[in-house]
Design a binder for these strands. Structure first.
Lengths: 265, 265
DNA sequence: CGCAGTCTTGAGACAGATCAACTCACGTGG
DNA sequence: CCACGTGAGTTGATCTGTCTCAAGACTGCG
């Protein structure tokens, strides 16, 4: 079972503070945020559900996790673990909507792909405190916009992309997130199963497997064991993924697109 | 062409201020935000592109619009107007990423579905000013999270839902947003074409049309002319859409799920 | 009234899902 | 250390839903 340690001095909080804007790291706001956080450890496969009443903000201090939504009624046939909405890695700030059924299907959960350390915050109180330091609040906003950007990109893919393009895009994204690599060759270990990949991409496990085989035969990818993959040419995969190329400009990422809808209340 | 009126006293700014938190409406922050906004009117079909250098924040004072991304290279075959990322209506705050090619394909655009009045802000300066009033910044964050919620919901749909479920979900969403209706019968006028719907749902225009026909034959939908639709039973469509039902609770919407990724820079 | 573009309907093609073996990696216990 | 078993992954054959291509019908506008 998940073990809970209420001591704010434990490992994990340090990583959280480092993720805050530099000028806020030693501030009272940082301390107060830590004070309302609860450290949780999840073993591989363990699940942190959402709260019934309140939204939660979860900082992933270490490890890897998937955000899942239970599949509505029957969907098609498969999908035991529910739809995978996104993958998360150390340093991510994830949020779990309260359980009341929302458009997403409510009852979201964060499932550890590998042993993970989390800091769980009540979202409402977190934002109340963060609001006192505009820099912190803005940092949270920036992350929200990045998440939105990723999600939008996802929508485009799911919209009308072939299985090959989706898998290629997935690999390119993972190369970036897991190995910090956006061009050339690179190797890394995937923490998630083929089933997770399929669930995230809207493909079956068989189709994912076939795509890996094709990429292998094309010489773009080699695999070792279940999890280790080496990409021969990230740029080529990016092309396959149907993404407009990052252009000549190297350098890190562009900030996000965003789009903020109206509350209809 | 789009006409630009730099006078901050014009219509549109009022709607913008009303969208701010009550306590901020008469504040200096509100006035300073208006001061950096530019009013733009778009006729049906006109396009507001993104800026080359800076992100833009766009408040949709009146009308309806679609956010589009140019389709990468060739995609499959069709999609003249590019992929539709989202639809927006009066009161929405939309943002346009700078043109530099991002993962979304860069070069986003906002295309008016009907005559619209917009207020365009430079995002950077907008946030600098908003940062001085935590309530305003938090309001922006709230909207971002709602947008993320919608986008996530979208991902789930695109992931593995049948054409029928997608169209049903689309109609339910529009009933909510255009007629404020979440159950029972309701009528409204769709500002977008079948092509736009298809582009947004990742379906062809023909498939969308066939789904409308099926829903019509099932007695769930009647249409009048091209744009007017009447839904006989929103709850039944919600079920068809594969969404878990909103439950017995009536009442307005739940706040959003969210999920904030890490900056990898 | 007639044209142009949108929408609808139909027939055939194809990508990916489904069902069903089979193989392999990896952890266990002899 | 190696045989073994379990579950993940791969591969193959078939089936289905959606796209594609091709007419046709309607809406709405000039």
């Amino acid at each position: 079972m998940a073990s809970i340690s209420p001591l704010a001095t434990q490992a994990g909080f340090g990583a959280f503070c480092e993720a805050l804007p530099p000028e806020a790291q030693a501030s009272a706001v940082a301390a107060r945020l830590c004070a309302i956080g609860t450290r949780v450890e999840l073993a591989r496969g363990e699940r942190l559900g959402c709260d019934r009443e309140a939204d939660r903000l979860v900082f992933l201090a270490s490890g890897a996790a998937k955000l899942v939504a239970p599949v509505a009624e029957r969907a098609t046939t498969a999908m035991p673990g529910g739809q995978v909405l996104s993958f998360h890695f150390a340093g991510d700030l994830v949020a779990l909507l309260r359980c009341e059924v929302g458009a997403c299907g409510g009852n979201l959960g964060l499932v550890a792909l590998s042993a993970s350390a989390l800091i769980v915050f009540p979202a409402e109180r977190f934002l109340d405190i963060a609001q006192q330091d505009p820099a912190v609040l803005r940092a949270v906003l920036t992350r929200a916009l990045q998440a939105l950007h990723r999600s939008r990109t996802r929508v485009m893919q799911m919209g009308h992309k072939s299985a090959t393009a989706r898998v290629a895009d997935f690999l390119v994204t993972m190369a970036d997130r897991l190995a910090g690599c956006t061009a050339g060759p690179c190797c890394f270990t995937l923490p998630m199963s083929r089933r997770d990949i399929g669930d995230a991409l809207g493909l079956t496990i068989e189709t994912v497997s076939r795509q890996f085989t094709e990429l292998r035969e094309a010489g773009l990818v080699t695999t070792e064991g279940r999890a280790k993959v080496c990409l021969a040419d990230v740029a080529a995969l990016t092309r396959l993924a149907g993404r407009p190329e990052p252009g000549a400009r190297p350098g890190p990422h562009k900030p996000p697109i965003f789009d903020l809808d109206q509350q209809q209340g």
